[in-house]
Each structure stands twice: as C-alpha cells, then as structure tokens.
C-alpha cells in the first residue's frame, strides 16, 4: 500500500474518534456546572436577570445538542470560538501558548532520549557495576519523585537561595541581564528553560534508561548476536549496528507516546514554574469552566495523540521489516 493512501485511511479512521471524544468532553463539561454562576459568584449586586442575559449572550441557554452542533460547525471551520473570560478568540490564546509548551516539552523529551542512549547502553554492558547502580538509582529517583516536589525544591535552591535562575515564566528576567552583561532574547529563553526542563528530563530519562537497559540486556542474549560474534564481527559493530537497532524499538514507542502526550502531561510542571503554556491554561480554564477554551485544548490534545500514534506506527514499519503498514 502506498504511504499516501495509508495516511489518508488512518486519517479517515480518526474522524469518528475525534467526534466521539468531543461529544464526551462536551457532556462532561456541561455536567460540571454553570460557568456564569461560577464567574459571577463573587459579585453580590448581580441579579438573576443579568445572569440570564449573559447565558443568552454566550448561547448557554440553548439545548445542549444544539450547542454542540454549533461548536462542531465552528470546529470544522477551524474556529474554537471565544473565551468566556474576556472574549479573546480561543484560536489566538492557543496559538500563543502552544509553542511555549512545545518548546519546553520537546527540549525535555529529546534530552531524555539522547542522554538515555549512552546511559542505557553503558549500564547494560557494565551490568551490576557501580556505574550501573548509580544510573539505576538516578532512574528510580526520577521515576519516584513527584514532579511538583522536585520543581519546588529546585526553585527554592536555585532561584530563592542562590538567585541564579528564574523561578517563573518563559521570558524576561531583567534582573539577570546585568549578569550576562547583554540583553539577549535566546539566552533569556534558555535561562528560563533550565529548571522546568531539568525536572521534565529527569522524569522522562528514568523510563528511557530502564527501557533501553532492559532491551539491550535482552538483545545481547539473542542468538543472532552470538552468531555475529561467531562470524568475527567487531564488538563495536555488534553493539552499535546489530544490537542497538533491536533494542531501541521500544524507545520509539515511548518517544511517540511522550510526544503525543506533550500537552496533556504538562499541567503540573507548567503550574509549578508558572510556565505560560497550554497545560497551565488548561488547568485554569477547567477551574473557571471556560467551555470554549476547555474544548479547544482538549481537541488539540486529542489530535496530537492521534497523529503521534500514526507517526509511531510508521516509524516502526520503517525500522522493522516484519511490520508492514497494512
């Protein structure tokens, strides 16, 4: 089957999934409460008539199926509507926050992947050595320590005690400029990335290293590795050509999942570091029952997961000749 045709077919299968998920999200959201009531709860002078006028304005008085169809109609025209708070278009909100989240997540995912290669290979080769135990301990630490705890500890030490790194935001730490002697946008962004990226990398690294170590140990026991050795192939080639390609396939799945869940997985870190990303916005929107924004971010998450799945499947077929994209 041609690649184009395959992608087209997979995309068609995604349509009912996306619609199904949007319906469920819509229903759950409406069951959660009345956003107008919530927004105006702190205002004692507001009358019920005024509240109703607001509901009318946002179309919240219409029957839910009708509201859904209206939402769907906008959605297929790539329009997520307007936020209930301030009326900013959801598309605009998402597009400014999207790249901040992607930046932080991609840096962390790729760092975790790249660092895990030498660490995983080394600890498999030197199984039960001091280095292996050290790497495993760091990995277990990374898996078991909650992201928010580590985040707060790092902020306390590196921001509040030492004052080296910013504790919040993704841009603009004017107090740091004199340290570098210049005002440099890229440097500024990097400085902001350090703490949140460290926390996320450590969390992801753990899974990557353990997966690669286990994969390597398993592959190195296989007959085809012994057969390569029996044929006089050098250890380096056995390791980096024949063993690694076999051991790395589970990591490709993990990479695909991590990329798919980039936004869904971001809220805690983004909240701890006040990162201006989609994850934090998602939490805020949910707490405020900002329906259009909740739906918008939910759909972005869904589509990213589905697309990442597709790309993972394609990567698998490319690596493993036994798997075909059928």
């Amino acid at each position: 089957m041609g690649l184009g045709k395959y992608i087209a077919r997979r995309a068609i299968y995604m349509v009912p999934l996306i619609i199904g998920i949007s319906i469920v999200a819509f229903l759950v959201m409406y069951a959660a409460g009345d956003p107008i009531q919530l927004a105006t709860a702190g205002n004692p002078s507001i009358t019920e008539a005024q509240r109703n006028a607001l509901r009318e304005y946002y179309g919240l008085n219409d029957p839910i199926p009708m509201q859904y169809v209206r939402w769907l109609d906008h959605f297929v025209h790539a329009d997520f509507g307007k936020s209930l708070y301030g009326g900013r278009p959801v598309n605009e909100i998402i597009s400014t926050l999207f790249w901040e989240t992607i930046k932080l997540q991609l840096v962390s995912i790729l760092l975790a992947f790249l660092i895990s290669l030498p660490a995983g290979i080394y600890s498999a080769l030197k199984q039960r050595s001091a280095t292996d135990y050290t790497i495993s301990s760091i990995a277990i630490f990374g898996i078991s320590v909650p992201v928010f705890w580590l985040g707060i500890v790092l902020i306390l030490v590196f921001s509040f005690q030492l004052g080296w790194l910013p504790s919040a935001g993704a841009h603009g730490a004017p107090y740091l400029w004199p340290v570098f002697g210049i005002r440099n946008e890229t440097l500024d962004e990097l400085v902001h990335l350090v703490l949140p990226a460290t926390v996320l990398t450590l969390a992801g690294l753990a899974y990557n290293v353990r997966l690669l170590r286990a994969g390597m140990l398993d592959v190195l026991r296989q007959d085809y590795i012994m057969a390569a050795r029996a044929s006089g192939i050098s250890e380096r080639k056995i390791l980096y050509k024949y063993a690694l390609k076999n051991a790395i396939t589970p990591l490709i799945t993990l990479l695909g999942i991590s990329i798919g869940y980039m936004i869904a997985g971001a809220p805690i870190t983004e909240t701890v570091f006040s990162w201006p990303g989609l994850g934090r916005a998602y939490v805020a929107a949910t707490l405020r029952l900002d329906f259009p924004l909740i739906m918008g971010i939910t759909m972005i998450i869904t589509i990213m997961i589905l697309v990442a799945n597709l790309i993972t499947d394609m990567a698998y077929a490319w690596i493993d000749p036994r798997i075909s994209i059928e």
Partner: peptide
C-alpha cells in the same frame, strides 16, 4: 530463525 538478525537484510 533466531540466529539471523530480524532487522537487517
């Protein structure tokens, strides 16, 4: 079967 590497031609 097990002595040939499955991922290489």
């Amino acid at each position: 079967t097990s002595s040939l590497n499955p991922l290489f031609a």
